[in-house]
Design a protein around this nucleic acid. Structure first.
Lengths: 339, 339
DNA sequence: TTGTACGCGTTATCAG
DNA sequence: CTGATAACGCGTACAA
């Protein structure tokens, strides 16, 4: 087993001091050509690579960024991670991914683990538990310590930091307007509970579009789904009790499940009922009919987040100047709406 | 801005030596009650937490494990990552995720970045590029250095290390047998190019099942898809030229796309043609008809991988005793086959 | 041109 | 009971 070689080994082997080796490997002018060549050759031969940990300790820079997301088996979040990775790697950063699993406690634990020197900055999206609880002290503490922090997608106004979001209101507005333009009159919204920031925004956009078109907002057309998983029954109750001709869903799964139920009731899509869903993931593309969707541009979001965060890390100015970047969503028309 | 506090700060503030503080915080018997209480109170007040990096340097243990996967916007890999995270966190480890993006070069770069002290061990699945190239020197070098390494799913026999896979042959066999039991006679296999280890295995299982049932293996029933993405044309060519009554696909996307095309040709599923796909992801569940699938138990795989790797990391014996854990796949019957 | 000494934050050993 | 010292691996200001 070829143990990792250190400056010390090289120094001893070549009968010079450690600092000479260090300088030689940085091609310092201070060192004679001969010595440099000898040392560099030796280093290459034994494949010397500086130890990241030692450098981190010295520089107080780890070149790691911590990403905390609620779930990883999730199309949108993974596209964001991919974007973060992509940009971070070009800047020589690694990405440490931690999952909060939608739990406040795990979010706190993970942040504490990472905050003790493991990372130079955070990119995160709040767990639903945290948003429900409304307790953001763990974020505030980290920020207090001077660790750069960026929130994306699921954010809160209660903490001051950089943010990247898509314009969820606009997404919902676009979608709703599209349905109205099709001539739909009874448009339903299928959403989650209100404490998720994104759901609130989407609902606002939905309502605004209706009002702008002088349509009435009827609470009975709004279905608030309980926690994910059991979709069958709520849909049944809802669609059996109200007659709709269009449905906007805050995620793909709701849309697919909704379409399935209505089709089983003999409705034709999109002739009888149009569907639009948030998050343009795999399901939207491969659904039958394929689903018209709001693309949230996760990868771009991740890249933007990484760019902003890394800039902040490397600028190290004390100024608390935070920006919120708002990306625009796009409507991708497929077969669940009428062209 | 409340800077992170160190032992040194505490020592200075309390007029004691650094080592006294260190010991006091570890509740050492050597330190008097009074001093300990004073120091512990102070530490708690200022929320002292030891610096991970310094500890890593000292212990030569980072408590990080590196996970390198070809793609993260991918249901199977994310379930594995989730399993790894889950187990690793219970053992106090963080997970550093790097993406090879199916590229040999990125795989090498990422491994080198992580191998210089950032992680205590690797869990990885080979990029297709690497499998195509057949060059595993980067893995061998890392293993040479004594860094524990575990391969999962996309593995190779050319490197000696721990491995976790599902029995892909068995999965394909199970699926094929199911189709045969339904009375299908013209069973197609839709797969990728042969250099992916998993595809090879699945093909072998498919062939074996046919032979065991005294059925002829006909090359014309095997469709080798080019790289992912453009599914339309190859399917058209294939299904227009051969008549089949069942299809086994090595992934969900192929299955969904295949079903779609055949439905567009007026075939009924599963009455005219049965479908089974590998990887029980979202698409399988929500497809129409829902897809009978081989569950690869990604999360279990991740947990098993993390368990084996961490055990190896913490046992630090020199013995090169490597095991290969083989998980059994499960057939999940849905509506694309006949019950 | 090369080497010494120090510091990053921690722990362990040993001396007082 | 407490403190000084060395060590982990590296970089660098300063001394030789």
């Amino acid at each position: 087993m070829k143990q990792k070689i250190t400056l010390k080994h090289i120094a001893k082997e070549l009968q010079v001091s450690i600092s000479t080796v260090s300088k030689a490997l940085k091609n310092s002018e201070e060192i004679s050509r001969d010595t440099k060549e000898k040392i560099q050759a030796f280093a290459k031969l034994y494949n010397y690579k500086p130890n990241n940990i030692a450098i981190s300790l010295k520089n107080k820079r780890t070149k790691n960024i911590g990403v905390i997301i609620p779930d990883i088996v999730h199309h949108f979040f993974t596209t964001v991670v991919r974007g973060v990775e992509k940009y971070a790697n070009t800047k020589g950063y690694n990405v440490i991914v931690c999952l909060s699993d939608e739990s406040f406690d795990k979010e706190v634990i993970n942040m504490e683990m990472l905050a003790n020197g493991s990372i130079d900055g955070f990119i995160m999206s709040l767990s639903s538990d945290t948003q429900l609880k409304g307790d953001y002290n763990h974020l505030k503490e980290v920020i207090e310590q001077g660790i750069p922090m960026l929130l994306f997608d699921r954010i809160t106004n209660e903490v001051d930091c950089d943010k990247v979001i898509i314009d969820d209101q606009m997404g919902a507005y676009l979608a709703t307007q599209k349905l109205i333009d099709e001539g739909r009159k009874k448009i339903a919204l299928v959403t989650t509970e209100d404490y998720l920031s994104v759901s609130r925004e989407r609902k606002t956009g939905f309502v605004r579009a209706l009002k702008d078109n002088h349509m009435e907002v009827q609470e009975q057309y709004i279905l608030q789904m309980p926690t994910m998983g059991m979709e069958e029954k709520p849909f049944k109750n809802f669609f059996d009790s109200v007659e709709v001709d269009a449905v906007l869903c805050v995620n793909e799964i709701f849309a697919i499940s909704g379409m399935r139920y209505l089709k089983s009731k003999g409705k034709r899509i999109p002739e009888d009922v149009s569907f639009i869903g948030f998050t343009d993931g795999l399901l939207s593309k491969y659904a039958n009919p394929s689903l018209t969707a709001i693309d949230q541009h996760g990868e771009k979001m991740g890249e933007a987040a990484a760019e902003i965060l890394i800039e902040k890390i490397e600028s190290e100015l004390e100024e608390p100047s935070f920006k919120t970047k708002i990306l625009s969503p796009t409507l991708i028309e497929r077969d669940s709406t009428i062209n």
